[in-house]
């Protein structure tokens, strides 16, 4: 059974909607409170990055079921400016907007799987997964 849902990100309020969706999905998938917080936080970071750096995009949540393992996948995609220097972006504290620069490296630590597809001028897609232990 594959199950997907999404929130289109246009305004700051859509960030709230995205993490509410994520929190519910995580809860319904059987994640405990700590993992729920991890997933909600990761969604908030990725959705805000879309809003801040690409202006608009989409945050999708997919429920996973593979080889008896269950989990959640977050897909954050936009057609914004893309990321020039991936190495810098993954460093703690690197920000081009005066933020804490904790979002990208933080999401990687909060989740089990983390993948970035980006092309300058074309856009960015970030996929992050968390498995139920």
């Amino acid at each position: 059974m594959e199950y997907r849902s999404f929130v289109d990100i246009y305004t700051e309020w859509d960030i709230v909607a995205a993490r509410q969706l994520g929190r519910n999905e995580a809860k319904n998938s059987g994640f405990g409170t700590v993992d729920q917080a991890r997933i909600t936080t990761a969604i908030s970071e990725l959705a805000r990055n879309i809003y801040l750096y690409a202006g608009k995009g989409r945050l999708e949540i997919e429920r996973l079921s593979e080889n008896g393992l269950h989990g959640i996948r977050i897909i954050a995609s936009d057609e914004g400016p893309g990321i020039q220097d991936m190495r810098k972006v993954m460093e703690d504290g690197y920000s081009t907007s005066g933020g804490l620069g904790a979002g990208m490296p933080g999401v990687k630590r909060l989740m089990d799987g983390f993948k970035v597809d980006t092309e300058p001028g074309v856009g960015t897609t970030i996929t992050a997964t968390k498995w139920l232990r």
């Binding site: 409170t33 917080a37 991890r38 936080t41 970071e45 804490l100 904790a102 933080g106 630590r109």
Partner: peptide, 14 residues
């Protein structure tokens, strides 16, 4: 600050 919140903050590096 709840345990779950403290853990995610630490993992974010904050």
């Amino acid at each position: 600050i709840q345990p779950a919140v403290a853990i995610t903050l630490i993992e974010l590096g904050i």
